[in-house]
Design a binder for these strands. Structure first.
Lengths: 336, 336
DNA sequence: GCGCTGAGCGGTAGCGTTTACAGGCCACCA
DNA sequence: TGGTGGCCTGTAAACGCTACCGCTCAGCGC
């Protein structure tokens, strides 16, 4: 049926050990021998059985990637980039999609990646101490994308600073009353941004000498519909805000919809700024805070692979965000 | 270090063969024995080494999923659903993200999933005969999502019929001149819809007694920007269309942007209908043709798993599309 | 009492690699 | 000429399971 290493060895006239060494590019193989081995492998269309190799070597040549969802912009982007980077390095990507709370519990209960990955990459999940312990107990390098924890590799943006930028921008435009559409900091699927982005919002207001107003902070649950409903509530306030900061672009879209339904103009009546800079933010002419997703993914993947190779550095990288001004806050930037 | 099957056997006072049988739920194990084995495995926190098991059994317990991108709505949705279904069945999901043409060529050249999956799921790629052969030569079941080929398992929608529905809807609204924003049928990353959706468009016009007008068919390349540019070209036509059918929602978004920039009203001046019904289509108040993505993914995954178990049925399933009327074609449906 | 049956279990030969470890060979030097 | 060290190569023991085969023994029918 399919060729095994022995067939190659026979055809090349060497031992299987030499075949193994030659094919993997190890030293101590004469050039002529190596060529013969490659020729034989080629002729037989041979590739090594990964399972046998992994069993014998103890290396899985696989990285587990854990995400709460794959069908959301941020995570899809991460998976896309990480897969490409891993493939280039000769690693397989084993995907773990938590999905919901039950899936999350099951995952941390069973630890299904045990004995099958060399390293783990966790994307934007707020983890409990027990969950961190569970990951650490794998004994493999663990990398965090979108959050930080001593002892773990990580990359993230400064959510506080990003949110601060957004609110600062609105303040600079002269807005006096700025509403917040936020995420639920107690969500069981808790991903990381909500906490910090809200803090950035509050910090910016405080630094501008504004008093915090709990009524102006409404939950949008990081969904479009949630953002829509939140905007509804904010528009109904006696002292209506003139600007809204949504902790994600998705929620900002919902807010825009609501505002349009109320026949209010953006940004003249109400300005809106989001966070993330998804591809369609430009389409919606939405001002936002851009975070570099691919860069984060590339950075953490490279360092995770280094960690597999024994690099013991456990650094935490923070990449900058960038204010992107469009028509939803500044009419002079409008593309329409 | 970590427990092996021998440790469990010793602790339970049985042979490793019995441990293996007990843990895998095979028959020929007394209940009392099984309980002892489970207790021992539990105490030692033992799980079988997947690589050893796969080497010995020849089963990979893994399905390869091949996609051209992961950061596009359709594919992200597919991966999300398939991962969940596979995990439930005890299978791992090995992701292969082609990315671009170079990646695609490399993939079909190397066939990196050789010897490491029990089956392959290919999502919405138009494949050449050679590529089909390459897949078939794996000797494992191959499932196609979004296209059809004799001898392969498949599930898809009827793109022709869906496009027909869209154009029919526009005709019923009284539109005389209907433009098409299409995909490039020669794109090297060729995914499947462009061909068929254009055919459906043409069929509908023909059946209505309209002559085909090549000038009214413009390429939008299945991107928002492409759709935007295509709409620009269509608006510049001497005999401007009163309605546009975009072969994907993404292109429809671009068209909406262009139309808004020209200060034209939707749908009064120009009606727009898309295809797919992505989550944000509702947000954009875009009429469209809904295709059931999760249903397709669930269906094909189930049948692919059955094929791994020896089911030799190679059926092709076609799921229905549905016209979703919103404000972009029918003002009475507008949510604004 | 006997043979038959089948449930329950153990022994063990693979599965296809990797990786010590042990040489063999040859050039080079004293 | 003998010794030494560097290349190169082969031998064989893991790696941790699965699956086949065969054994034991209780229960059963006759």
């Amino acid at each position: 049926m399919v060729a095994s290493i022995e067939d190659v060895a026979r055809l090349a006239g060497v031992s299987i050990a030499t075949v193994s060494r030659a094919l993997r590019g190890l030293p101590d193989v004469a050039t002529a021998t190596r060529d013969r081995v490659f020729a034989a492998a080629d002729e037989l269309d041979y590739i090594a059985s990964p399972f046998a190799a992994r069993l014998a070597s103890g290396r899985a040549a696989t990285v587990g990637v854990v995400v709460p969802f794959v069908n959301r912009w941020f995570f899809a982007e991460v998976i896309d980039t990480v897969e490409t980077a891993l493939r280039k390095a000769g690693f397989d990507l084993l995907l773990y999609n938590l999905g919901d709370e039950a899936g999350r519990d099951r995952f941390f209960d069973v630890m299904p990646m045990r004995k099958r990955v060399d390293a783990v990459l966790v994307a934007s999940l707020v983890l409990s101490d027990e969950e961190f312990d569970a990951l650490a107990s794998l004994g493999s390098p663990v990398a965090l994308l979108g959050l930080e924890r001593p002892g773990f590799l990580s990359v993230r943006i400064d959510d506080i600073q990003g949110a601060y930028q957004a609110v600062e921008h609105l303040l600079a435009l002269g807005h006096q009353r700025i509403g917040l559409i936020g995420g639920d900091t107690d969500d069981p699927m808790r991903f990381t941004p909500p906490l910090h982005r809200r803090d950035g919002y509050r910090d910016a207001l405080r630094d501008a000498g504004r008093a915090a107003d709990p009524a102006a902070e409404v939950l949008g649950y990081f969904t479009t519909d949630g953002g829509s409903a939140a905007a509804e509530a904010l528009l109904a306030l006696p002292d209506r805000p003139t600007a809204l900061f949504a902790e994600s672009d998705e929620m900002a879209y919902g807010a825009l919809r609501t505002i349009r339904r109320h026949n209010l103009r953006v940004p003249e009546d109400i300005a809106v700024i989001g966070f993330d800079d998804q591809a369609i933010a430009e389409l919606m002419d939405l001002s936002t805070i851009r975070q570099p997703v691919a860069e984060q993914a590339v950075d953490i993947t490279a360092r995770l692979l280094a960690a597999i190779d024994g690099d013991i550095e456990r650094t935490n990288v923070v990449l900058p965000t960038e204010l992107v001004v469009r028509g939803s806050t500044d009419v002079t930037h409008s593309v329409y």
